[in-house]
Design a protein around this nucleic acid. Sequence first.
DNA 1: CGGTGGCTTTGACTCAGGTCAATCCATCGA
DNA 2: TCGATGGATTGACCTGAGTCAAAGCCACCG
Lengths: 229, 229
Amino acid sequence: MCSYSTPSELEVLEKTKFYQTFDPGQDIVSEGENTATLGSIIDGVVALQKTLEDGRRQMVGLLFPSDFIGRPLRPVAPYDAVAVTPVRMCLFHRTKFEALLSQNVNLERRLLEMTLNELDAAREWMLLLGRKTAAEKLASFIMILARRASALQNATVKNGLEVPIPLTREAIAEFLGLTIETVSRQFTGLRKQGFIELSGTRSLVLTDVGAVAALAGVVQEDALTDLTA
Amino acid sequence: MCSYSTPSELEVLEKTKFYQTFDPGQDIVSEGENTATLGSIIDGVVALQKTLEDGRRQMVGLLFPSDFIGRPLRPVAPYDAVAVTPVRMCLFHRTKFEALLSQNVNLERRLLEMTLNELDAAREWMLLLGRKTAAEKLASFIMILARRASALQNATVKNGLEVPIPLTREAIAEFLGLTIETVSRQFTGLRKQGFIELSGTRSLVLTDVGAVAALAGVVQEDALTDLTA
DNA sequence: CGGTGGCTTTGACTCAGGTCAATCCATCGA
DNA sequence: TCGATGGATTGACCTGAGTCAAAGCCACCG
């Protein structure tokens, strides 16, 4: 949207954009807050999360570079957006962006498509949260990271692929609707079965893609809807 | 969209629309199917659901009259849409609808807004699926029905309100990521605590709204994002 | 180097919700 | 009136994941 927006008329957008960085753990948007800006991620990983009164927390979105944050037409966010890693964002002022939106059909179309993608991803995620076991959840999570990692190097998901894990165990737990301990146990479970190798806590190597994919409930490679928007 | 679409230019839409009814349990859209039509619900309740290989099933959307079904720009649905009650739909042919979409900015805007609403609802639901207990899940579900019931008679959610339950226990279980038995036990749990009264299996009366709302995690009445689009 | 604090892993135990198996109950057709 | 059928409820039991608590493992800092 920022870097690769439709050409031509979007020069106005170009002019009003600005950049901002966030440290891990820092809020980009807070729930209920009247957000004045919106934009897309240039670098880093951002989690969208909702929190219950007593502190129970659930991640409801995991965003990577090029993903869009913020809701046009909707001043108040129903969730927090938190930087998971150091994040660099390209931002616009809401009002200016909305003005542009009503003038530019392509932009609005693009936004609709992105929102539909996010909705599909959210629903895939609901299936995971409501019906998958802890092992299946973690396998699904690993497949997401693996697909992302392989895409970045124009490769396919295959044995030997090294997959960086940009989240702490706590963030993974909040993503999957589990506890830290269960996440940790499932990691060692997969390792002991020979499905993955763990190199430190922030990276793994796939040693049995078939097994992991099967656990994740993946049928055909192309049937995958990425859980992330 | 059908009944109350923006006036003026939408006469073309008027002309191409047609009606169809579905029996409970009947598929309106099947996962992976190349859907030729889309439209909105006139009457009845529709569930969107995803199914795992081994039959585990999760509802990912619950739609009521006036809600829209089908994804423009996207021929293949990533889920099933199933009639829960007898359903009457107002339908359009995809191609004609899309043609209209590109000509009519208001329609596209409306669609974007509806999609954003659905996304918010989906995320609220993810919080429920990932972090709420069985009792909290059922209380949340009851609040959704209660709000809907009260809205239909221009009233507020208050003690004594009679709330119809348009779903079987099985459908409720698939909605909440639980089993039938647990749903049933939670219903009797709420009844024994004096929070609700059960009149048959398809209707209940609220006797302690405060308690149910508290269980559901509702803070302020206006803070509610309806879980349904 | 040696401590210190933040993650992570592991173990022992608990418990919420699932599973399996009877009933129960309402509706409906004969 | 009487099965019969398809939910719904209830009970007994089990288990997957949570809880609580103790190490383990770095990385960073003095």
